[in-house]
């Protein structure tokens, strides 16, 4: 699949935003005294919403006819994209309610627990639906599995967690528990991603034989029937050399997981705390951006079978 920058930005930043928001809320509802204080929470939420909004705006750049974007919520009955859109839009009032709750201190503890749980769940569900946009496509084996939404959630949470750490560090000295939790999150996300890499490595899925109904012999493409590229070859024909993909996978593991985990683990104490977290965040973002690029670049749409690919 052709990796469109707008979509990469969208999924990574909004994922991180929802992750951050969810963690902020969750932390808030779990820990009695929030280390950030109300102002910190609001800042954290604002940053999260900023990321989310940036992501959503970025996603509209992907549209060829953005003037109809408002219609994108029409088909929540069936479309994960519509659901995602609706969840994303409805998240704003919920987030606002949460922030007002914090800001004005309204409602009791129970209300706070309810609204923060609701916001966190909503945020996670939204990332889940982002993942489902891809996971529901039977045409792309690399996406059409449970690991896709899991990865989206874990990576969003991971990035959110790292940003959260950074924000917390501006208010509080190190909170070991948080660092440890973050590290676990990184490790779990890394494991999920590694499992994914292995999983998509085994050939499965439709073949040129089932695509053409000639199942008993070797089938080879002779001619595509057009001189130049088409919408189909541009959108789906994107292909990167195997070696480069492998190299990029190592970069993902390095930037998204190894560096953040390592700095969290050994960096604290060696460097100023904000530098440690800044490195983790930046590296994490770079890593997840590459991961997202790979998510597209490694996905092989079945239409490629008709253009000569033997198996997707």
């Amino acid at each position: 699949m052709h990796p469109a920058l707008s979509v990469i930005f969208f999924t990574v930043t909004s994922g991180a935003g929802y992750g951050l928001f969810a963690i902020t809320c969750l932390y808030n509802s779990i820990s009695q005294s929030h280390p950030l204080g109300d102002e910190g929470v609001l800042l954290s939420c604002a940053i999260a919403l900023g990321l989310i909004t940036f992501g959503l705006i970025s996603s509209t750049f992907h549209l060829a006819n953005p003037k109809n974007a408002w219609r994108a919520f029409s088909r929540v009955r069936t479309s994960w994209l519509a659901r995602e859109g609706l969840l994303a839009i409805l998240f704003y009032p919920i987030a606002a309610l949460y922030m007002v709750t914090i800001w004005k201190g309204i409602g009791g503890y129970n209300w706070l627990a309810v609204i923060s749980m609701l916001s966190a769940l909503w945020a996670i569900t939204t990332i889940f639906s982002t993942g489902m946009i891809y996971a529901c496509l039977k045409t792309i084996r690399q996406w059409h599995n449970a690991l896709t939404p899991i990865n989206y959630i874990l990576l969003g949470a991971m990035l959110g967690g790292l940003i959260f750490l950074f924000i917390v560090s501006m208010y509080e000295p190190v909170i070991t528990g948080l660092v440890v939790t973050s590290t676990y999150l990184i490790i779990i996300a890394a494991i999920a991603k590694i499992v994914y890499f292995f999983w998509i490595g085994t050939p499965a899925g439709p073949t040129i034989n089932t695509a053409t109904s000639f199942t008993r012999s070797m089938v080879r493409l002779l001619d595509v029937g057009h001189t130049a590229g088409t919408f189909l070859t541009e959108e789906f024909g994107y292909q990167v050399a195997r070696a480069r993909l492998i190299a990029l996978r190592w970069l993902v593991l390095l930037f998204a997981f190894a560096i953040p985990a390592l700095v969290l683990w050994v960096g604290v104490g060696l460097m100023p705390i904000s530098v440690v977290f800044a490195i983790a965040v930046i590296s994490g973002f770079i890593g997840v951006m590459i991961e997202r690029w790979l998510f597209f670049a490694e996905a092989r749409h079945v239409v490629n079978l008709y253009h000569g690919t033997q198996q997707c």
Binding site: L63, A64, N65, K67, N68, A72, L137, F231, E235
Partner: peptide, 9 residues
């Protein structure tokens, strides 16, 4: 709105 999603599907 030209999102291409249907083409992906």
């Amino acid at each position: 709105m030209g999102c291409n999603y249907c083409a992906w599907a």
